[in-house]
Design a protein around this nucleic acid. Structure first.
Lengths: 220, 220
DNA sequence: GACCAATTGAACTAGCCGGTACATTTATCA
DNA sequence: TGATAAATGTACCGGCTAGTTCAATTGGTC
């Protein structure tokens, strides 16, 4: 179904080649993602991206128009990823406290496992989310995580377990803040405090503190 | 004592001018800060910075060596700012719970009031803290916030108010995460959720939730 | 197998951008 | 006041960088 990705090694340098739009597109996106994540939008070089693909710079412009178009396409794949993660959450059957803990843990884990997403979001924030705004695709991908949170929260309030009067969105943002920080600020925290937040031990500690903070904030 | 900052307007375009090393340096740093904060390291243009100063590009290289040297100098002023803030904290006389709440609030407020610092830290993380590492100046500016946190925490544990066994650094990082997020992720959150985290009302909510989360996590 | 649209390649370019050469003016101080 | 060092201005450059031109090849269609 999906055509095989063309690796850099097997570059088709002969006079003859086989058409493979899907593969070329995917190959460019993969390389571009690595470059944008590593160097940011302005820091990434189209020539470098092209050199690392199995194809040429010409194809980047053919498929993505310009550098920002390519960046936007990468951004879109990232947001598709987290939306898909959010949809996969199935916490309706768990009791409120367990569900909320599980939500926090899953969110935490997602960010740890997807540093590229985290870095891309950082880059995008440096640019005031200009490309996020410009993407019709991402606009259509509305987040379901707030509704998930609302459901759990309201069940908890009804059961007398959580204190009432809070905004589900704020709860969501708190979880997000505690999850993303470990990855996004790994470098500066590592340098300033001589502490790597991403070792397995550090992550385990930070994970349980995240759950404790979220539940502690909700408990009445 | 400090010479007046030369504004862009009163550029000295005459054949004669007065020397003002301090002023020129400061003027360049101010302009550079705005540009780096707005565009990042690779996004900022030395020509643009020069054009917005009262002096010329020549002086940037005279005083700061190269673009990265200028960036590093800006970064250093930022870290001097937060270290100074940390030293100004005087929470030893407050009871543990109040002191911890006050620490969280003050940290929260500092980030809200210093978005330039927050953005600079973001940019620096995109670059894997390369320039932070390179700065001897910042290395000498060790953070006192962990010791402040440790003091409060240990008093709280001794008083039977906080649960024992936690790392002061982790508590610090939790406060930091919850404080910085509102500013650093304002753009993407604003776009994705249609929610501006930096309105006075939103900040008030997020501020009290931050305190609640931190205390909730510590309470035994 | 001839035609056409989609896809790909190689070489090229205009302008930007970090950095510099060189000359000149201002302050310091003996 | 003259010599020296520090500070500043003007003009310039070489390489990089996003984007393009022009042409060729491929695959499907009738």
């Amino acid at each position: 179904m999906t055509s095989p990705v063309i690796t850099t090694r097997e570059k088709r340098r002969q006079a003859s080649w086989t058409q493979d739009p899907e593969g070329v597109r995917r190959n460019i996106l993969e390389v571009a993602r690595a470059e944008f994540v590593e160097n940011g939008l302005s820091g990434a070089r189209v020539d470098d991206i092209a050199a690392k693909t199995a194809t040429s710079k010409r194809m980047i412009y053919y498929y993505f128009g310009d550098k920002e178009g390519l960046y936007r396409a990468v951004l879109e794949t990232m947001y598709e990823g987290i939306r898909s993660f959010e949809r996969s959450l199935d916490l309706g059957s768990l009791p409120p406290v367990e569900a909320m803990a599980r939500l926090a843990e899953a969110t935490f884990d997602y960010h740890v496992e997807n540093p590229d997403f985290v870095r891309m979001v950082m880059v995008e924030n440096v640019h005031h989310a200009r490309n996020l705004k410009a993407s019709r695709t991402i606009a259509g991908l509305n987040s379901s995580v707030v509704e998930v949170t609302r459901n759990i929260y309201e069940r908890g309030v009804a059961a007398g377990l959580f204190q009432p009067g809070l905004e589900p969105l704020d709860i969501s943002l708190t979880i997000s803040a505690l999850s993303i920080y470990n990855v996004s600020h790994r470098a500066t925290v590592g340098q300033v405090f001589g502490y790597d937040m991403c070792t397995p031990e550090a992550l385990a500690r930070r994970r349980s503190m995240t759950v404790a903070a979220v539940l502690g904030m909700l408990r009445r």
